[in-house]
Simulated assay, not measured.
Amino acid sequence: MIAIYPGSFDPVTLGHIDIIERGAKLFERVIVAVLSNPSKQSLFTVDERMEQIKKCTQHIKNIKVDSFVGLTVEYAKIHQAGVLLRGLRVLSDFEKELQMAHTNKTLNQEIETVFLATTKEYSFLSSSIVKEIAHFGGSIDHLVSTNVAQDMYQKYQNQ
């Protein structure tokens, strides 16, 4: 079965990589789908995010990195995916993700959402936190892969 792991991944964190690695063990194929949302101000372009994810996941053979615009369920349908893979960190994530799963089910009865609880060492981690730490000059080396940390340091240095 094919699973879609959608998200903005701005930037991709070690928590995201954990979900990708674990999802790749559960599903025949995982498509990491980077959402292009023109109404959202992103630190990295879609192409930059895709390249970061590819570098971080080159050790995983059954994944594909792609991008999309629009509804996740429509993207899943095009790629014949039956599952949306989502990570959960805290209780507030569950409330939001459950609402989204129910909404997606009303749009496509064939799609299922599978939640993976984030491992405890990443339960606090979000892309927003990583950006804030990097913006103020803090170390993010323990939160993102080396290539992403370098990209972020360079991005904030140039601003």
Rank of each mutant, 00 (worst) to 15 (best):
K54V: 00
N62T: 02
C56N: 14
V46C: 06
Y75D: 00
V34L: 01
I31R: 01
T45F: 08
V46A: 02
I53C: 04
K54T: 11
C56P: 13
G70R: 04
C56M: 13
V34C: 05
I60V: 10
V46Q: 05
I63R: 08
I63F: 03
K40V: 12
Q52N: 13
H79F: 10
E48M: 08
K61P: 00
N37S: 08
S67L: 02
Y75L: 06
S42K: 10
A33I: 06
L71C: 06
S36D: 15
S42P: 11
T45M: 03
A76Q: 03
Q41R: 15
A76R: 02
V34D: 03
I63S: 09
N62D: 11
N62P: 04
V69F: 13
H79D: 11
T72Q: 09
V46P: 04
K61V: 01
C56G: 15
F68E: 02
G70D: 11
E74A: 12
P38G: 09
T45P: 06
T57M: 05
M50H: 06
K77A: 12
A33R: 01
S42E: 05
R49F: 00
T57A: 03
P38I: 02
A76W: 12
Q41E: 12
N62V: 07
K40Y: 02
H59T: 03
E74D: 14
K61S: 10
Q58E: 14
V32W: 09
L71I: 04
I60D: 12
F44T: 03
T57L: 07
V34F: 10
R49Y: 08
N62H: 12
V32N: 03
I31D: 07
D66N: 10
D47I: 11
V34Q: 10
E51H: 13
E51K: 13
E51W: 12
K64M: 15
V34S: 05
V69L: 15
E74Q: 14
C56L: 12
R49I: 07
L43H: 03
K40P: 11
K54Y: 09
T57K: 02
I31F: 11
N62M: 01
Q58P: 10
E74S: 14
A33F: 03
K54I: 11
T72N: 07
I53M: 05
D66M: 04
V69T: 15
S67Q: 06
T72P: 07
T45V: 01
R49H: 02
E48P: 04
K54P: 00
S39R: 14
I31A: 07
V73C: 02
K64W: 15
I78M: 13
E48V: 08
I60P: 05
L71Q: 03
C56Q: 06
C56R: 06
K61F: 01
I63L: 00
M50R: 12
V46D: 10
F68Q: 08
I60T: 07
F68H: 04
Q41L: 01
F44V: 06
K61Y: 02
F44Q: 00
D47P: 05
V65G: 07
M50Y: 09
F44M: 02
T45C: 13
S67D: 06
E48D: 13
S67R: 02
T57R: 09
E74W: 13
